[in-house]
Simulated scan of single mutants.
Amino acid sequence: MASVRDVLRIGLTGGIGSGKSTVSALLAARGAVIVDADRIAREVVEPGTPGLAAVVDAFGADVLAADGSLDRAALAAVVFADADARRRLDGIVHPLVRARATELAGAAPPDAVVVHDVPLLVETGQASSYDLVLVVQAEEGIRVARLVQRGLTAEDARARMGAQASDEDRRAVADVVLDNSGTHEELAAQVDRFWADRVAPVLG
């Protein structure tokens, strides 16, 4: 089994609606191993997990759905507008996510390119944990339009964007910035350049 030091570790982040998941898929198509923090965050609070038990202890049974699973909408209603509650939730979930992410990265082969897809990479101060930090950005209006297409109101979209790190904060820790304000083809071309310029030389 590889240790995390044996692999090229890329931290991928971007604000909601920026297209980070699209970049993650493009990197996976080029052979990268994807460690998806959002997916792990769902796994660590599945029914029967210590994570879900800790969330219920902190926020009460009202955050559970009828089937015993986490009612994400109910939990979001509690923590979204309450910074202290959000910190309590982060204190439960983030350590579990990091531990599982480390486990998955450690299982990668020695020559792997491991991409950690971390929406809150900047907010949680993880930039220094990676060999490269790749940031995806897009114009605010385009991001709002994408989120509206997903079912949010424009007001909700801007509120969620405002709760995250700013583009300036992300650029401050970025080794490479991809602009996803254009077409899918333009984004894919930027990913190709990133792979050729920053990844392929490391792979040899």
Rank of each mutant, 00 (worst) to 15 (best):
R146A: 08
L178G: 04
A157K: 07
Q149H: 12
A154S: 13
R150A: 09
T153N: 00
L147Q: 04
Q137S: 14
R146C: 06
A154T: 05
A163N: 15
D175Y: 03
G141V: 08
R160M: 13
S166A: 06
R160P: 08
E140Y: 00
S129I: 11
L134R: 04
Q164R: 05
A138N: 02
A174E: 02
D179V: 10
M161V: 12
D167T: 11
V133T: 13
A127E: 06
G151I: 13
A145V: 11
S181A: 11
A163C: 10
A172T: 11
D167S: 09
L152S: 07
N180Q: 04
R158L: 15
V177E: 05
Q164D: 08
D179K: 02
L147C: 05
V135A: 05
G141I: 08
N180H: 12
A154H: 00
Q164C: 06
R170K: 09
A127F: 01
L132N: 00
D175L: 01
Y130G: 04
I142T: 15
S128K: 12
A138I: 10
S181R: 10
Q137F: 01
A154R: 00
D169P: 09
D169W: 10
V136K: 01
R171M: 05
A138M: 06
R143M: 13
V176N: 04
E139D: 15
L134P: 04
D156L: 13
A154K: 05
G162W: 09
R171L: 00
A174S: 02
R150L: 11
Q149A: 15
E139A: 15
L147A: 01
V136S: 02
Y130K: 00
S129N: 14
E168N: 10
A163H: 10
Q149C: 12
V177Y: 00
L152D: 05
E139V: 13
A157Y: 07
S166M: 06
R143E: 08
Q164N: 07
D167F: 06
L134Q: 02
G125H: 02
Q126T: 13
V176M: 05
V177T: 13
D131Q: 08
E155M: 03
V148I: 11
